[in-house]
Design a protein around this nucleic acid. Structure first.
Length: 115
DNA sequence: ATTCTGACAGCAA
DNA sequence: TTTGCTGCCAGAA
């Protein structure tokens, strides 16, 4: 019972993970977009906080697909090596220059819009 | 219970 | 244009 309830009630973090896992290959989204989808709106910082704990999750969270609203890889520093995040994104066909995603609006995936 | 922090976003100077 | 401060929410110490 508790475990079942936990699945739906675990809260913010789970939702963040869920959405992050839903990001299609070769697409990216922003912290604010996720926050808004969660209904928190301005709590974009929480999304980052949740992703920070993502490494504690049993599954791999494609957190490299989540960037700030400028398409800037603000969280790349949290991927062990600073280049890891960029490498992963480039591996998915996303061009990055100076830590910024080129054609960000084009690659942008809005959970609210798509879901 | 109180305080601090945090991978952001928005606005002001 | 770049830099800095504030607001926001939830979790951790």
């Amino acid at each position: 019972m508790k475990s079942e309830r936990q699945r739906d009630n675990d809260g913010f973090f789970e939702k963040v993970y869920e959405i992050t896992l839903l990001i299609p290959y070769g697409r990216v989204t922003s912290y604010g977009a996720i926050a808004r989808f969660l209904g928190s709106g301005q709590s974009a910082r929480m999304v980052g906080w949740a992703l920070n704990s993502s490494h504690t999750r049993p599954d791999f969270i494609p957190a490299h697909r989540v960037v700030n609203r400028n398409g800037l890889l603000t969280g790349k520093h949290h991927f062990g090596n600073s280049t890891t995040m960029q490498q992963l994104l480039e591996n998915e066909g996303i061009i990055i220059e100076d830590n910024r995603i080129i054609d960000f609006p084009e690659k942008f995936w809005d959970p609210m819009k798509e879901l």
